[in-house]
Amino acid sequence: MTEPDEGMTLIVKTIGRLVLNFILLFGIYIILYGHLTPGGGFPGGVIVATGFILLMLSFGRRIALKKFGDLAASLLDNLGALAFLIVAFLGFVGGYFFLNFIDRGTPFDLFSAGTLPLSNIAIGLKVSASLYGVFVALAIFGKAIVGGDRTGKGKAEGEPANSQEQKG
């Protein structure tokens, strides 16, 4: 028998495995088409994050963390924010912060709108990683407190869950 820690029943696992790819694909679609259709970096990022959260809910913490660990999440979180800032700074090439300095192309093409898709990708990265990070933090800290193995005492435990910062 599987332990309660090891995720949910076979039915959930099978369906989750099937649906996961579509969720991720849909999230990426929303991010990439952010400048053409409703959506963009934030909603797309949220959808991608829910995909990984589904992974954690159905397969348990251990497997999900093996696929997408908390360190990777916090790294991607920061990199996403930095990428967004770099796009903004590159605007100085044309003389202004946040200037859309790339050729806009023809409207409604996938490769159009200059820096907007780049910003959307950066935001998508940031939002998906940080929302997943929040979920991981809640899962780990919840376990630590309920399981009673909260070892660190006093100020030494000043490790608040990261990625509580603003989202895009």
Binding site: L75, N78, L82, L85
Partner: peptide, 13 residues
């Protein structure tokens, strides 16, 4: 605005 925000994320990496 950009310096402190950028520093915040860069320093975590």
């Amino acid at each position: 605005i950009a310096f402190p925000l950028g520093a915040a994320f860069l320093m975590l990496i």
